[in-house]
């Protein structure tokens, strides 16, 4: 046996482990391996000496009963839950999924917001009130479109100037009841757009042909400041 092989057994020997006879014979007659065994033994003794000289600190007294009661409440709830566990697990999944969706929507909204949003409140001639939001700084933002009974309108932002916003408005009256099945775009085909300046916080009355006026008020919602 060579020294390289015997060394590992010298280490085991100093731990009191049984080693092969050939290794024991080599260590017995090899001065270097015997010296290595001695060194290993000295290292161990020195480590134990160092450890014994260090003061073993007292540990904190703990209220284990209280800790158990505090830490296992949820487990008790789980064990005594009245609904089937897979339903409970499913509920958790749904909550997490909804939470993730909300997060994604919020992130997207923040990414697209580029600042302010115009919140429009519209009152139709028949007294119905509706609300919708328009992004101010996005030219591709969809217009506010709505239809109630025979009255339909589409509003879009053209420009903003200080405390007022220029709106493009298209209004159609006498809409047939079958109209909702057609896309809103086609509903306003051929309808002329009129421009109006809306003072924020004040009412704007947009007249329509024969059906009364569409009353619009607006306020700004600056999401970057929230």
């Amino acid at each position: 046996m060579k020294c390289e092989e015997a060394r590992e057994f010298a280490s085991a020997l100093c731990d009191g482990e049984t080693i092969p006879r050939s290794a024991a014979e080599h260590i017995g007659r090899c001065e270097v391996c015997r010296a290595r065994l001695k060194e290993f033994t000295e290292i161990g003794a020195e480590l134990r000496r160092v450890a014994s000289l260090e003061t073993v600190e007292q540990v904190k007294v703990r209220d284990w009963q209280g800790i158990r009661e505090a830490t296992v409440w949820w487990r008790k709830g789980w064990e005594t839950v009245r609904v089937p566990r897979f339903v409970f697990a499913l509920l958790l999944v749904v909550v997490v999924a909804l939470g993730s969706d909300l997060l994604i929507m919020r992130t997207r909204a923040q990414g697209q917001s580029q600042g302010a949003m115009l919140v429009l409140t519209t009152t139709l001639p028949d007294g119905h009130t509706m609300m919708c939001g328009l992004l101010l700084n996005s030219s591709k933002a969809a217009p506010c479109e709505a239809m109630e009974k025979e009255f339909a309108y589409a509003l879009r932002v053209i420009a903003k100037d200080g405390n007022r916003v220029e709106l493009g408005a298209r209004i159609r009256t006498n809409v047939f009841w079958s109209a909702p099945v057609v896309p809103m775009d086609s509903l306003f085909k051929g309808v002329e757009e009129h421009q109006y300046w809306l003072e924020l916080g004040q009412e704007l009355k947009i007249p329509s042909s024969g059906s009364g006026a569409l009353v619009v008020t607006g306020s700004l919602l600056d999401r970057n400041q929230q």
Binding site: K2, C3, E4, C30, E31, V32, R36, E39, F40, I43
Partner: peptide, 19 residues
């Protein structure tokens, strides 16, 4: 053990080995 021995006794130099 070998690693500790090498670090601890390194400056003293190693010992000869036979085979």
């Amino acid at each position: 053990r070998e690693a500790l021995r090498t670090i601890w006794q390194g400056p003293r130099g190693g010992s000869k080995e036979n085979s």
